[in-house]
Write a protein that binds this DNA or RNA. Structure first.
Length: 875
RNA sequence: GCCGGAGUGGCGGAACGGUUUACGCGAUCGACUCAAAAUCGAUUGAGGGCAACCUCAUGUGGGUUCGAAUCCCACCUCCGGCACCA
């Protein structure tokens, strides 16, 4: 026992003795979190209570992961909202005998560091490291049981070298590739990351300039390969909304691919195939024009000479327009004819070809057949440009028939897109008259025979663009040589380190591009002069696998200790915000699948169970952010109330998955509750002067009855609270503990106070509260042990208590009696009453007899095995 | 526009189809105190009644049921995501 411990024991023993001898006068010290929390945090650290032996097989493992923070400088109350309940889960699981691994780290690469560096002329690394140091202190002040030995900081070369190594594996496996594509570009600051483009008008976050598109050679990861597999969530216990969002993001769409050909003309020989993707092959006869994306590769060669200037102007305009402008549905359709025609393979009809920005180059084939009668967008375009509209699907009984003249498009006020039962094809040559479903399949089959069409599936999911024109990220390990082309950096030369000195030249341009010592390098293959890739990786790369690195953060020979990964992953429980639904959480799944395909891992999925806590907003209802000035600093709250109160308040506020605007009006109530627990534990005999019934047992209750009631309350609470921890219903968990405290308060100062039942209840109270409020419970636990003369042992190393079912049963219970569904009386009956007796007792209840006034009930219903009786009587 | 989620006291929120409003905040009153704070106790959905009690209330309107905050249909509002994806 340490000196401090010894001192504490003497003090607390003395306080208790005084209280027992002189209940009227004795005053215990008040609950003062500041004087106990630091001490216990240091003690836990010393003892290594939270260091996990990953090789310990004697206990079942539990990998608990919470999303690591970005070190922006200050954690706000929202971070605590995620982390303190998660820590309670860790402690709860440990008390259940699990070997819990609960690591933490820092998502240390990213834009704010560079932004601050440019503004304040400091190195992004120094800025980041200083913030991390500060946040470590904040996280420790919370009293969380993070295993700091496993900490991972992603901007360290020992971490990011493995990003590079993975990239090289992906390159070998054909999962990484380079391609020219349009990226967001700011005229002042150069290329922007996706998150640097703000607002619906898509402006640069730093200078406010309009962002446009530029073609750049970029590195991609071939994640679309996993589209179908990513749609499979079987075996994952994830929130339904996240699964829905990912499913929509992946956007699988089934249809057919149809090959049109270009018609010969004065400037073009024709015969060039143009493939289109459609989900409505049944409407093929209704195609009256074709639209290509402005970026479609055939646009230049197909455009008629006299149309060139107009087409080029349109393409340039489409390129400059912001994406939102382009994609906005309420904007009027624009486009130009390119002076060429396509031939529809089903009827050899020649239809004009347009380019229009409502057709996207990145989806399907970048070309569509336009069926204005059955597609709203095509309809709007046709109306605008005066193009024919031909109806080819008719609802039964609509009057439209196979007769071509009967269904002129002019009659339509909008596209007919509904799918009515039994709708049939019209104006569709040999397919007219068949139902839409059959006809569609028959059309695809007919085209298939001529090799002009086939069933096809497309996805909205795109490959992952990982190139960022930024300094503060993982350098992409590639060298460009004039003689050898694109050469990967040899694995043994990893890591490609970020240079320590950074010269921003006062602008946002990637400083790596003008760092000669970084850029100039000898080609690994021919030793001639070559240049390094200066792009770095998206920071979502780091978070796509960081939890594997926690298992062996120092390991030098490999990214992941595969043995430990096999034993410890997938993660059993992941907690974090839903804002990462389709970014981080999807990238993480993709990365694990890519690692599996490269033979690094065996598992298919990273996170078995996921929980999304709600988001704490500012008092203004907006997202908390420094720039809005609405962040709440947890340090202040901890100074005022102590970490236990803050932790408990965050759990008590409301359902964990809900969040909402920050309001601390109730925090005093939670603090008061802990003060009451403190008083119950240390001063059970006190008689409050303000309570007329204080110090006496409730009317008509003897000591034995009181003890029984106390035990019942304690064990009932234990039953509820255990279930609530398991299902993360922390708000009602706290409420139940408050109720138990209220119950005990009724017996405070009475003859049963500090008696056997009371002591048992207090023991359970402390154990139940321990995961949520670890400091106060540890303090009271240690005093309790000292008072008993037992050796100290941490409350957090205790086993979770068992419910004594015999304590919970009651001899009698109260049953509400309803007449026609309205409660009119209650009867007290033996717990084991049979249905017939219950009915008789219910009908004999005074109010019931009075209200029935001699009438015979039509029915008597007993609900829930006799928990309620409803007497039905007709008026 | 499409896809999710949510609407319960003055407020945060409880409630396996079965006693609506647990727990907490706030408010009012009382005890302790010279006083205040802290602490302790009581009351607190709305309306009516001296009372015991009665009536009405879970966004709106219907429905199913002995019984609906809960299930079904239609609508309104708020929050989140996607947004011309052929």
């Amino acid at each position: 026992m340490t000196r401090r411990e010894a001192g504490r024991t003497t003090r607390s023993t003395r306080a208790m003795t005084q209280a027992q001898q002189n209940p009227e006068r004795a005053r215990i010290e008040r609950y003062d979190p500041a004087s106990i929390e630091r001490g216990w945090q240091a003690r836990w650290d010393e003892l290594g209570l939270h260091r996990t032996d990953l090789h310990d097989q004697s206990k079942p493992k539990f990998y608990l992961l919470t999303m690591y923070p970005y070190p922006s400088g200050d954690l706000h109350i929202g971070h605590w909202y995620i982390k303190s309940p998660t820590d309670a889960i860790a402690r709860f699981k440990r008390m259940h005998g699990f070997n819990v691994f609960f690591p933490i780290g820092f998502d240390a690469f990213g834009l704010p560091a560079e932004n601050a560096a440019i503004k304040n002329r400091i190195n992004p690394r120094d800025w980041t490291m200083r913030n991390i140091e500060h946040e470590r202190g904040q996280l420790r002040s919370m009293g969380a049981t993070f295993d700091w030995d496993a900490e991972v900081v992603t901007c360290e070369p020992q971490f990011y070298r493995w990003n590079q190594w993975f990239f090289l594996q992906f390159l070998k496996a054909g999962l990484a590739y380079r391609s020219v594509s349009p990226v967001d570009w700011c005229p002042n600051d150069g290329t922007l990351a996706r998150e640097q483009v703000e607002g619906t008008d898509r402006h640069c976050w730093r200078c406010g300039a309009k962002v446009e598109k530029r073609d750049l050679a970029q590195w991609y990861l071939r994640v679309t390969k996993y589209a179908d597999e990513l749609l499979d969530f079987s075996g994952l216990d994830w929130p339904e909304p996240i699964k829905v969002m990912q499913t929509n993001w992946i956007g699988r769409s089934e249809g057919g691919e149809v090959e049109f050909t270009t018609a010969p003309s004065a400037h073009h020989p024709g015969g060039e195939p143009i493939r289109v993707f459609t989900t409505r092959p049944d409407t093929l006869f209704g195609a009256t024009f074709m639209v290509l994306a402005p970026e479609h590769p055939l646009v230049a060669s197909l455009t008629a000479p006299e149309r060139h200037s107009e087409v080029e102007a349109y393409v340039a305009r489409a390129r400059a327009a912001t994406e939102i402008e382009r994609l906005s549905t309420d904007r009027e359709k624009t486009g130009v004819a390119i002076g060429a025609e396509a031939i529809n393979p089903v009827n050899d009809e020649r239809i004009p070809i347009f380019i229009a920005d409502y057709v996207l180059s990145g989806y399907g084939t970048g070309a569509i057949m336009a069926v204005p009668a059955h597609d709203e967008r095509d309809f709007a375009f046709a109306k605008r440009f005066g193009l024919p509209i031909r109806r080819v699907v008719a609802a039964p009984g609509s009057g439209a028939t196979a007769d071509p003249g009967a269904a002129a498009g002019d009659e339509l006020h909008g596209a007919y897109t509904a799918h009515a039962e039994g709708e049939v094809l019209v104006n569709s040559g040999p397919f007219s008259g068949s139902t839409a479903g059959e006809g569609g399949r028959a059309i695809v089959a007919a085209l298939g025979e001529r090799r002009l069409g086939k069933p096809a599936v497309t996805y909205r999911l795109r490959d992952w663009l990982i190139s960022r024109q930024r300094y503060w990220g993982t350098p992409i390990p590639i060298i460009y040589c004039d003689r050898c082309g694109t050469v990967p950096v040899p694995e043994e030369e990893l890591p490609v380190r970020l240079p320590d000195t950074v010269d921003y030249r006062g602008s946002g341009v990637n400083p790596l591009t003008h760092d000669e010592s970084f850029v100039n390098v000898a080609c690994p293959s021919c030793a001639g002069p070559a240049r390094r890739e200066t792009d770095t990786m998206d920071t979502f790369v780091d978070s796509a696998w960081y939890w594997y690195r926690y298992l062996s953060p120092e390991k030098a020979g490999a990214a992941i200790d595969t043995k430990l990964a096999q034993a410890w992953t997938p993660v059993d429980q992941y907690t974090g915000g839903a804002e990462h639904a389709v970014m981080h959480l999807l990238y993480a799944r993709e990365w694990t699948k890519m690692l599996r395909d490269c033979g690094v891992l065996e598992q298919d999925e990273p996170f078995k169970r996921l929980f999304n806590q709600g988001q704490i907003l500012g008092t203004d209802g907006e997202r908390m952010s420094k720039s809005r000035g609405n962040v709440r600093d947890p340090d202040d709250l901890v100074r005022t109330y102590g970490a236990d109160t803050v932790r408990l308040f965050l759990m008590f506020m409301g359902p964990w998955d809900q969040g909402g605007p920050w309001s601390e009006s109730g925090i005093g109530g939670v603090h008061r509750f802990l003060g009451r627990v403190w008083a119950l534990a240390l001063d059970p005999h006190r008689v409050e002067p303000g309570d007329p019934s204080a110090g006496r047992l409730p009317e008509g209750v003897d000591a034995a009855g009181a003890e029984k009631a106390i035990r019942r309350a304690a064990h009932q609470t234990l039953r509820e609270v255990t279930a609530e921890y398991e299902t993360f219903r922390f708000n009602t968990m706290v409420a139940h503990l408050m109720e138990l405290a209220n119950t005990l308060y009724r017996y405070r100062g009475s003859s049963v106070a500090a008696g056997p039942a009371w002591n048992e209840a207090m023991r359970l109270m402390l154990l139940m509260l321990a995961p949520a409020a670890p400091h106060i419970t540890e303090e009271l636990w240690s005093r309790r042990l000292a008072a008993e003369g037992s050796a100290w042992a941490s409350i957090h190393a205790q086993a979770w208590p068992e419910v004594d079912v015999t304590a919970v049963v009651e001899a009698t219970r109260e049953v509400p009696v309803q007449i026609n569904g309205k409660v009119r009386d209650r009867v007290v009956v033996p717990t084991d009453v049979d249905a017939a007796t219950l009915e008789r007792l219910a009908l004999e209840a005074p109010r019931i007899r009075e209200l029935l006034a001699g009438r015979t009930p039509d029915r008597v219903i007993q609900a829930g095995g006799g928990r309620l009786v409803n007497v039905v009587v007709r008026e």
